[in-house]
Design a protein around this nucleic acid. Structure first.
Lengths: 349, 349
DNA sequence: CTGAAAGCGCTAACAA
DNA sequence: TTGTTAGCGCTTTCAG
């Protein structure tokens, strides 16, 4: 029977029910109760049941911070991203969260807004042991990797996804950026394009480099000259990149084919073409790296290289949890490649 | 000078530098160091400087869990959402994160996937004190609110945004759903529509109800009968809601105007119209509640009611932090309404 | 202004 | 199988 004392306590502030209260109530020690709650094999079935029943009855919820402090494990991972208002990252988060929820982990989210200083500050904080592992897609400004190495050197498991750093020896989940860009470029060549532009944003990013390489390789494999001025590096600002793309398309010898290496650049390209009354695909054919759910109903529908965002999120999270399980072991130094799909629609004729 | 002992320790595992190590090194007590680090007024400027300098030099990072355990504050908030692969919620997270980062708070993210059981489990966990406050946008299945009340009753500050529960006396950040739907409906009437359909998903949701009321009121204010069968409740499944909408548009007396109360239903409507060779806006005019960045380049461009998602996220987070600052006080029982904008484009002729 | 000491709630040796 | 105890690292009285 529940004592008066405890009852009152219970009605006053349920959240103050702790292991000690349960122990006192049952005439057991805190150690026994702790083990019973964790379903330890060294506790008798009867005791376990009594403890668990009372815990449920009193709505006992363990204090995660006490547990984390003691066990040096937080059951929490961090996801560090450039931004979230972007279909790729949104879907990736969905995938990550699905796996984390299944494993009973909590997910802290941090946005760098493509700012290296923020990224550094965020990773620095993880030295505190706030999280057990990190899923990271680096900012567009991230060239140096000291801040990542620092954290990694202290045995923090880090798994990269999409925007990776080759130089850190850990698991990286990526899509086949080189091949996709190659395929897209080749496709535009086959469709008769003679002057194919490559639009990108952060030129230092792994994905940008790979995509650019795929683009260049496809051109040279098809006996096309690679003109550096066909690679347009846009500023990461909606208005400015509108101007940049507009300038490019106002040239005498403008592109008749465009590869937009980033989702938002496809949209800007469409807007510029509308403004300049250039027909897609008549005057310019467009392929975009994109996960837009609305790609099919754009005007015209957009040919995309669609990345397996959800799967990449899941794969990254799974790789991290694999490392966390056999604890004190770091993620394998491997690259998991999940292929993208070229979905042909009307923007390429 | 740093002692040999500490030096070795330092090189082995930086993260094990704690307050005690700093204290020992400086010949101070842990209490003094703790206060110096928190810039307490009861510590001399000289001592503070010495402590802070050493902390920086040794790259000391405080253990957040020890601090949380002791202070019963986690400096962490939770964001509980139905999903994230959705432009509204993505933008809202951006807004929330911006405020949280500024205030030095951490953000845990949880997705309910529109599932009430998950929502209950997630909120139940918060009883542990894992977070200092909760930003919540309820699932489509959430009709009962006992799980929310339970948490709220234990003094957990909760701020609702977008999908709110009227019955919980706390801050709610919403947009003017009734007025927006009214405006959209009126606009379609003015454009000559005689048979306006209202497409929605979760009929129990505050936003759905308000939008539906706005739709009905506009109809009756313009002497139109409100036919319940003009309100189409779609299942929350891409394939099924395609079928539902298709059925509706295959009727003899099909709609000549549609209000899509949810972003994804606009996209489905477009796909169905394409399939059935119905012209937008010729045969059917469409207005969608949507934050799609691609709305302007759809075929045809989509007239939208665009919600101030980012601002709503910021406002909700700000309201929560306001309550957290003057601690032990709960968020005001008020409704912050941030208006949406009707952006007229080609889908309404 | 600084130090000593008592915990926050939980876990994990080690004893019994 | 259960109990005892010593902390995890930090904060916060209260004394000095």
């Amino acid at each position: 029977m529940v004592s008066e004392c405890l009852k009152n306590h219970y009605f006053c502030d349920m959240s103050n029910i702790n292991i000690r209260a349960l122990a006192k109530e049952l005439g057991l020690s805190v150690g026994t109760v702790s083990k019973a709650l964790r379903d330890s094999h060294e506790i008798s079935a009867g005791t376990k049941k009594k403890v668990q029943d009372l815990a449920r009855k009193l709505n006992y919820v363990p204090n995660p911070y006490a547990s984390s402090l003691r066990r040096r494990k937080s059951k929490t991972i961090a996801v560090v991203l450039p931004e979230v208002a972007n279909s790729f990252f949104s879907l990736a988060i969905d995938g990550i969260e699905a796996v984390a929820q299944e494993k009973g982990y909590h997910v802290l989210i941090y946005l760098t807004h493509e700012n290296l200083l923020k990224e550094e500050a965020i990773l620095q904080d993880f030295q505190s042991g706030r999280v057990d592992g990190v899923l990271l897609s680096v900012s567009g400004q991230t060239t140096g990797i000291d801040h990542i190495r620092d954290l990694f050197a202290k045995d923090m498991p880090i798994v990269f996804f999409d925007r990776v750093c080759e130089d850190v020896e850990t698991t990286k989940v990526i899509t086949d950026d080189f091949e996709s860009a190659y395929k897209a470029t080749q496709f535009l060549i086959e469709k008769g394009c003679n002057h194919i532009g490559f639009l990108c944003i952060s030129p230092g990013l792994s994905i940008t480099i790979k995509r650019m390489q795929g683009y260049k390789k496809a051109l040279s494999d098809h006996q096309r000259a690679v003109d550096p001025s066909d690679i347009i590096i846009c500023p990461d600002d909606p208005d400015k990149n509108y101007t940049t793309i507009r300038n490019a398309l106002e040239q005498e010898d403008r592109f008749d084919g465009i590869i937009a290496a980033i989702e938002k650049l496809s949209i800007t390209t469409y807007l510029v073409c509308k403004e300049l009354r250039l027909s897609i695909p008549g005057d310019v054919k467009v392929v975009g790296f994109s996960n837009l759910s609305s790609a099919a109903i754009l005007n015209p529908s957009l040919t995309t290289i669609t990345q397996p965002a959800f799967e990449m999120g899941k794969a990254a999270a799974s790789a991290l949890f694999k490392a966390l399980k056999k604890d004190s072991s770091m993620p394998a130094n491997e690259c998991i490649v999940i292929p993208s799909t070229l979905i042909v629609r009307d923007s390429t004729g």
